[in-house]
Structure formats: C-alpha cells, structure tokens
Design a binder for these strands. Sequence first.
DNA 1: CCTTGTTCCTGTAGTGGCTACAGGTTGCAG
DNA 2: CTGCAACCTGTAGCCACTACAGGAACAAGG
Lengths: 133, 133
Amino acid sequence: MGHGLTRGRLAADAGVNLETVRYYERVGLMPEPDRTSGGHRDYRPEHRQRLVFIRRARELGFSLDDIRALIALSEPGRRTCAEVEPIAAAHLFAVRAKIEDLRRLEMVLDDAVGRCAGGTAPSCPVIEVLGGR
Amino acid sequence: MGHGLTRGRLAADAGVNLETVRYYERVGLMPEPDRTSGGHRDYRPEHRQRLVFIRRARELGFSLDDIRALIALSEPGRRTCAEVEPIAAAHLFAVRAKIEDLRRLEMVLDDAVGRCAGGTAPSCPVIEVLGGR
DNA sequence: CCTTGTTCCTGTAGTGGCTACAGGTTGCAG
DNA sequence: CTGCAACCTGTAGCCACTACAGGAACAAGG
C-alpha cells in the first residue's frame, strides 16, 4: 500500500538498528511519518536524509540533545555557522578532555601490565595499583 | 551503638557517593556489613579498603564485572599475576581502541570547527559534514 | 483467492552504573 | 527530651539504545 520506505528499509539504508528508528521517533528526533492503511510507517526520502544526519552526528559523539539543536539549525534559511560553532566547539573540547583522561589511564595500565608480564611474582602490580594488599 | 563506620562516613572516606555504596552492596561488589541494633550499617576498615579498591578500578575504567574478577583474584593466597594480566591487558587494548576512535573524531571535528570559525558563510561546514543540505 | 512466511505493529522491560527522591526511623548532641 | 542530621527501604529516573512477546499486515507463490 505504501509507496515510500518501510521502517526496516529506512533503517537498513541509514545503517541504523530497526528499533532505534522507533526510539528516535518517540524522543522527537524523527518526525512521525504517514501510515499505510494498515498502520505501517511509510517513510519518504527526507526521512532517510534526517536519519543519516543523526547517525553521523552520533558517530561524531554528539548527544541527542545536541543533535536536536543541530537539526533545528540545519533548517534552510538559518544563518547557521555562528550558532552551530559553539555546540561543535564545546563537543570538541569534551572529546579532547576525554582523550586526555584515557591517555593518562593508558599510561598507568600500560605500566602495571608491563610489570605484570614478568612472571609469577608473589604480588601483582595491577592489584597493587588498585591498593589491594 | 555501632563502633565502626557509618555508610556516610565510609562513602566520604573512600570518595564515593553515598548511594553508590548501597548500589555496590546490591550488585554484590561490597559485602553486607553488620548492622547496629537499630538497623544501620556498621562498616569496618576492610570495607573501606575494598571500596577504595573499587573506586580506583573504576577510575581506571574497569567494568564492575572486571572488578568482581579482580577482587576475587586479589584475595590472599592466589597466584594473581597470570590471571590478572589478561583482564588488564584486554582493558588496555579497549582503552587504546577508544583513544583511536576519539582521535579520528577529534580530527573531523577540529577541521569542521576550524572552517566554521570563518564567519557568516551561507552554509556551515559542521552541518555539511553531517550531510545536511 | 489462499496460504505462507516475513515484516511490521504496540507496549514494555532490560542494559550499565549510578543518582535521586519520598516517607519513615534511628542516633546523638545539647 | 527535643530537635535535627543521618540513616533506613523501595522505587524511579538518567542516557541511548536493544530486545522481546503477542498479534496484525503485507508480498509472493501456487
């Protein structure tokens, strides 16, 4: 009955899990599509574009709240850059902080694991780092 | 009535949220302590040591499942290193993978934000990266 | 037209690792 | 003995999904 895309097709096309589509609709990230006479969702190409947008933004680590804002700002007729930049810059900042955190923790782990590899010591360097015994 | 530590005291000493202590007990990471006559938890120093262990392991990014294993392996009388090393090494591997992911994404973001800063362009590089318009 | 099998529908519950709240009891200091 | 802080329990919420159960609709083959 529908002449557009089914939910399964849309999800596959955009590279997103089937259930995730319904979730995005529920939280207001995806607009409610038309329905077939039988009640099945009937998507159009703009839905696919929107879903790909969301997927890419998620891959870049933006939160769903950020993505809501980015979607609003990507509507035609907006002078976007000035409004988009702070969101992206804040996220970039957070990403860099996360990298720093992980690097510090990589060093501690690497050191402990390196000393661990030695052999059958009576106490383990990894456990020691954690304050055990 | 209790001559040990209260939950609040334990949590503060170990640098952990009050409610988190109860949560760790619920999921079997912290042993159930004795109770006062009135039903309040009454912790002893070994509880604090355990909680600090958990907190440090969390800071290093270990999952609660990993931590359960590490705790078991940190019991006295275990020849730990050979058994601890694979857990820590696997985690180190995951941390490095995460750093790689974040670095890739940092580059994409940095590039887009850099081009964004330019000014009042008609279309925004960040939005373009995401496939919008 | 009818059957078959896949996809879809809805609502709900679970994941990890907490955190927060409500409504009530206990502990302790003044 | 009063007052209030800290505790008690159970439960719900957070994020971003993912999975399931029980049933209806759709597309293709006979």
